[in-house]
Nucleic acid binder design. Structure first.
Lengths: 218, 218
DNA sequence: CATGTAACGCACTAGTTAGTTACTTATGAT
DNA sequence: ATCATAAGTAACTAACTAGTGCGTTACATG
């Protein structure tokens, strides 16, 4: 499943199912992210992955099944990266600020995540229904945020009764919306949304928004 | 440009350029919103509008140009609806709460707006570039929000120095994200995002988020 | 009533596109 | 070595799709 195979072990290893599968997945991710499910072309994915179209049908079954695989992998990656932050080792305020910052930086570094999720929702989430491993991870994630909130209440930093799901949605929303709509936003507001200054301003604004939302002092 | 022509003036008026154009636009809006730009089919739009495909090319020039027309109309409609709220006649706090509530309710009542904007951004906003009338409206809208913020500062209700653009983006974001990602969100969080209780909870949460963000007391 | 103009519609084309068939080639267990 | 199996390829197909050529029909104007 390694995405690339730059230094083959012995000679030029011509046959490597795992590597081929990984290359197809990476190429599909790029293609689906750029053009959406309907706009993506199976032939282009085959070419981008320097594999053959037949291999896509062999390993994944078809265009839609390939999209399912791409989507689940994308979601698993962000949930795994969040877990790797070890937020539970941080004081509550710092943990929450880190989460807001991480979410923002993840979207910035992985813009294809956003367009993939948008495509999935255009099709009513149908391609995520069977991703059971992900549902478990998601629950663990919500529970972790709940524990951070609880700790913050104990220390007197956070208000009581905040729903971790509403909070998660809000943290995602204020970063996601800015970035997914940066093109139409840039035209309408006559600003470059990706300029370093603009990015810094927005991140600070977002951290401030979340801190004011959950803060106990008021 | 009237979308329907239920009561024709004299006899059965078989030829009506305006009505045909309007029907095509309405059908295209529904089709593009449902399937995206690449997924939409010109033949289907022709059939849905009970017009002929030839007419689409006659009136709009092509699929992409039709998408441009649909998109600009959609944006103009929301900006016009916002203006019709006459927020400047309300006290600052009430004006801002009304704006948050309106934005939410507009997205709920016009779900196609969200998917159209998503499609436009998938294509890097290219289809909105020539919408000059809209840019003017957008500036007027931002100026109006700025005036509400200024009034709020004068009355002592709002903090100083809030950027109306960051605020607008945030108001849109917390409603938009919840609704555009309601399908994947529903699967991952195991909740029905559109249930009446869930909708009410989210709207209250959103109003609270914005009020805490701009409120002077802290 | 004659006539120019714009609305309208059928049927076609040239190029795509997802998915498949039939085949070759490398690999590793025996 | 050999041979079953999995990896890999090229060429094909049937259905689809954006766009167009060309002819017809309604309506306003003089």
């Amino acid at each position: 499943m390694t995405a690339e195979n730059i230094a083959p072990e012995r000679k030029t290893r011509k046959r490597d199912a795992d590597a081929t599968k990984g290359r197809i997945l990476a190429a599909a991710k790029a293609e689906f992210a750029k053009l959406g499910l309907a706009g993506a072309r199976v032939d282009d994915i085959a070419e981008r992955s320097s594999a053959n179209k037949r291999m896509i049908y062999h390993y994944f079954g078809g265009k839609e099944a390939l999209f399912c695989a791409v989507l689940e992998e994308a979601y698993l990656d962000i949930r795994e990266s969040e877990r790797a932050l070890n937020l539970e080792d941080l004081p509550p305020i710092e943990a929450m600020q880190t989460l807001v910052r991480f979410t923002w930086e993840y979207y910035l570094a992985n813009p294809e995540f956003i367009t993939l999720v948008n495509s999935a929702n255009l099709h009513k989430g149908r391609h995520l229904e069977s991703a059971d491993r992900l549902k478990t991870r998601q629950r663990q994630f919500v529970d972790m945020v709940q524990r951070i909130l609880d700790r913050g209440v104990t220390t007197g930093d956070f208000r009581k009764g905040i729903d971790p799901i509403q909070l998660n949605i809000t943290i995602a929303a204020i970063g996601y919306y800015y970035l997914t709509n940066r093109h139409t936003g840039g035209i309408l507001f006559q600003r470059d949304f990706l300029e370093p200054d603009a990015l810094k301003t927005r991140l600070d604004f977002n951290i401030d928004t979340i801190m004011r939302l959950i803060s106990a002092k008021d």
